[in-house]
Design a protein around this nucleic acid. Structure first.
Lengths: 129, 129
DNA sequence: TGTAAAACCTATAGTAACTATAGGGTCAAG
DNA sequence: CTTGACCCTATAGTTACTATAGGTTTTACA
């Protein structure tokens, strides 16, 4: 199949597919005589792997590491686990940050009754302090 | 004070201060004869406002909007409240996403006992599906 | 007074993970 | 044989900075 079809079946945009290729996350595809990219089911699977990783917010660099690890099937999977745990740490850290943000934003919002002037707005006041 | 001192008292890097200025978040400072930026307490307050907003993950564009609103003190503060509520929506949305990520990452990690081969690793298997 | 170091200046490029555009080439249908 | 859909590469834009190059000004000290 050509890139347009791969794009539709995978749900990745054409530019993103080309970008992943450039970044080494997808192997260089066959080409037609007219230089069009030609993909098979294997390519689709590769792309779906990448997509799944991205949906977990794993960075492209880490995805590349995972792909490299996949290509060493007899090695220990501890490094894979390590990477996932680091990802989990990142997620937990960001969640903590967001919780703190949420609390402050809620407090700010509650000090505003919306029919005040900006001058006397509790939100602006708290941002100023 | 010069930019180095402002940087130290505010905790913003020198480059960031110059960047905020370029983006219109800080008013253009006075200059010495030798073209060095000169700041006063007002500038420090402006910068701290920006910093506080950034700590709430408010985008530079929205901070600019807030600054514009601050300069219309008699207007209604409902637009301020609106902006903060949108920010809260963003935070809530991202938190939901992160919760889902966390669950999947935890499940993945739990299927890996770390002394398996990559070939049989539960993590890679679940990423492949 | 000379000079060296520290602080400052502008302009530009790099970061992540894409998206969008310009300016072209290829291919199938009518 | 031409039109439109699809494809190609290369480049610029996005956000919020950070880092660098290459230069100027100020300060401190001998």
């Amino acid at each position: 199949m050509k890139i347009g079809e791969l794009s539709k079946t995978s749900g990745c945009s054409i530019q993103t597919i080309r970008y992943y290729e450039k970044e080494g996350l997808l192997s260089d595809p066959e080409r037609t005589e007219g230089n069009f990219r030609l993909y098979d089911v294997t390519a689709l699977k590769q792309l779906e792997f990448v997509k799944h990783c991205r949906s977990l917010d794993i960075s492209l660099i880490d995805i590349k590491r995972l792909i490299d690890l996949k290509n060493k099937p007899e090695e220990s999977c501890s490094s894979v686990n390590e990477l996932i745990k680091q990802q989990l740490d990142l997620v937990n850290k960001r969640m903590k940050e967001l919780k703190a943000l949420k609390i402050e934003l809620q407090q700010m919002s509650s000090t505003c009754n919306s029919d005040n002037t900006i001058e006397r707005c509790g939100i602006i006041k708290s941002l100023d302090s």
